[in-house]
Design a binder for these strands. Structure first.
Length: 571
RNA sequence: GCCCGAGUAGCUCAGCUGGAUAGAGCAACCGCCUUCUAAGCGGUAGGUCAUGCGUUCGAAUCGCAUCUCGGGUACCA
């Protein structure tokens, strides 16, 4: 990366200056003390370093330090200048030329780091109850999770994506009871869900069980004797609906892990026993309590209720231990902020059972508000529900994925459905896709002959197909040189992709990819407006075609391979 | 009360491991299509970085306090 190249030059120069005793009282330089930044004013250079922080060690004024360091830099063909305590750096021809060459050479792998510490990661996300369709909030975790998985894989990690199915709690019984009411309604009985608010909470009164009831009656005469049969039927239906939607939404799971199998395998009981053996369980009010407060939780938690049944947490502990025993180096969970209380207790249990709680990384995501006609609409499972499916139908997969990924996970996402529906220029995903389509269009035009619509006269194509192939498949380093004066910013933006990937992967923040892609599109649109690609000057045309192709490559990589949003050839 | 998160331009948000004049998109206003996609580009205007105090040569960024908003605070899942 150019910024790494630059800081190395600076650090080397500092070391030499210290050795020569030119940096006052400064005796040693610790690597990483100085940070590379972008100059406020692009005229200063591409990158800059502020050496003011060295002043208190050297006891010399910052500008003098900067000038001393400058003398020791091996400048090659790059430009350096000093303003105040800043050393500014402007990339020379070689760095820029090599960067474009790198894009051609690496193509789909451009931006992949050379050697990272590879981790075996289990990424768990969505993990919805199989009791109804996904709501909008699930869409955020689905989009972000799948983008993060793509990103971490690209970065070089081994990523296993898992969906935990909460198919064992009391909610499954509720589901069966609710289906029973829908079936009786189908059979013509005058029944309905309770109107009393508290009573009603024992049911799922959403319309979505009506088609399930109809389907049940296709193969059954009436209600079964055992409600469990209905629970299982509804559960299977809901799971199937959820899986279909995930596939549609380009979200891929390597495994769906059923909570029920966890219970049946005895792993939950085993965990409870181990916790008991560790002496971290005590009895109170007829229930078993886990002393999680010993490990930083604010209070102890019930692990076995007075009625003898397990809590949700109990199974979750067993699940996380199971993940660790499957040999993953790192567990990453994406959870809604409404689960934040769970982090401490799950970590506590991991530690109590002798595992490293730092292996678990929980990404807490703030929730999604739906905005309809300027009013926020509360998301509830039981009424006013806008499902993820409805949203995707309205807005499309691409826009939904992009919008759900484009904000910092720490901020509440306002999803304005009216705005997203308009598909106007307020929609950043179209802006980016348009840039890609535009690049493709140029590449098509350059090898097409032109026909005058009035005279029917034909003009030969500006470039033959072979000439274009020669650029894209057998790219020569020097090709891009004629554009260096006019396309500096664009080339530097392409270069930035490498650091965006790095930061985004390491900080698990996928929104930075969305931002980057918008910035690259913007640079490209500017370049397009300022420079005609197809022209008489053949060398210049080849150079610009090479750049257009580079932009298309990086946009495509980011859109399709990371964000899983289509990169259209035409729009 | 306690625990998370947020508060930056009219709106939606970047910037937060302290550094140059606080940035972008949308909305507003002014320009740019006989030529590769105007779904685009260029420009103008728009700020008490919630508030106060502190640390520092230097604070949107760090610390303390206060205010506002969202979420959590179950022997539900």
């Amino acid at each position: 990366m150019i910024r790494d190249y630059f800081i190395k030059k600076i650090e080397l120069a500092i070391q030499k200056a210290i050795n020569d005793g030119k940096l006052g009282q400064m005796a040693e330089y610790k690597q990483g003390t100085l940070a590379v930044e972008r100059p406020k004013n692009a005229d200063f250079g591409d990158y800059a370093v502020n050496v003011s922080s060295l002043a208190r060690f050297a006891k010399i004024a910052p500008p003098q330090i900067a000038n001393t360091i400058l003398e020791y830099i091996d400048k090659e063909d790059n430009e350096y200048n000093v303003i105040g305590g800043f050393i500014n750096f402007k990339s020379g021809k070689n760095l820029l030329v090599n960067l474009v060459y790198e894009i051609f050479k690496k193509n789909k792998d451009f931006g992949k780091p050379e050697n990272i510490e590879k981790e075996k990661i289990l990424l768990e996300y969505v993990s919805a109850n199989p009791t109804g369709p996904f709501h909008i909030g699930h869409g955020r975790w689905a989009a972000m999770g799948s983008v993060l998985a793509n990103l971490l894989k690209f970065y070089g990690h081994e990523v296993y994506q898992e969906f935990y199915i909460n198919d064992a709690g009391s909610q499954i019984q509720k589901l069966g009871n609710s289906l029973a009411i829908r079936i009786r309604q189908e059979l013509g009985e005058d029944v309905d869900f309770p109107t009393d608010e508290i009573e009603r909470k024992n049911y799922y009164p959403g319309d979505y069980l009506i088609p399930v009831a109809k389907k049940y009656l296709e193969t059954h005469k009436g209600l079964p004797e055992n409600i469990k049969e209905l629970s299982d039927f509804a559960k299977a239906e809901m799971e199937a609906i959820q899986k279909d939607l995930l596939e549609n939404f380009k979200v891929h799971f390597d495994n769906f892990y059923s909570e029920l199998t966890l219970h049946n395998s005895g792993k939950v009981e085993e965990c409870v026993n181990k916790l008991k053996a560790s002496g971290k369980i005590y009895q109170k009010d007829g229930a078993d309590w886990f002393k999680s407060s010993d490990y930083g939780d604010d209070q102890d938690r019930v692990i076995k209720k007075a009625d003898g049944s397990n809590t949700y947490l109990t199974a979750d502990i067993a699940y996380h231990i199971d993940k660790l025993e499957r040999g993953f180096d790192r567990l990453i969970n994406i959870w809604g902020a409404d689960h934040h209380g769970y982090v401490a207790r799950v970590k506590a249990s991991i530690e109590a059972l002798g595992y490293d709680p730092n292996k678990l990384e929980v990404l807490l995501g703030q929730l999604v508000n739906l905005v309809i006609n300027g009013n926020e609409v509360r998301m509830g499972k039981r009424k006013n529900m806008v499902t993820l499916e409805d949203l995707i139908d309205e807005v499309g997969v691409d826009a939904t994925r992009f919008w759900m990924s484009m904000r910092n996970i720490d901020t509440t996402l306002d999803f304005d459905i009216e705005l997203a529906k308009t598909n106007s220029d307020e929609n950043p995903v179209f802006y980016v896709q348009y840039a890609h389509a535009r690049a493709c269009s140029i590449l098509r035009h350059v090898i097409s002959e032109k026909i005058n619509s009035e005279t029917g006269e034909k003009t030969p194509s500006p470039m033959t197909e072979n000439e274009l192939k020669e650029i894209t498949e057998n790219y020569q380093k020097d090709t891009v040189i004629p554009t260096l004066d006019t396309a500096r910013k664009l080339i530097l933006k392409l270069e930035e992709y490498k650091s965006v990937i790095k930061n985004s992967a390491e900080q698990r923040q996928v929104y930075t990819i969305c931002r980057y892609v918008q910035e690259l599109a913007s640079e490209f649109h500017s370049f397009y407006n300022a420079n005609r690609v197809i022209s008489e000057d053949k060398q210049m045309m080849k150079a610009r075609i090479a750049l257009v192709y580079s932009v298309k490559t990086v946009l495509r990589n980011a859109l399709e391979d990371i964000l899983a949003v289509t990169a259209p050839e035409r729009m």
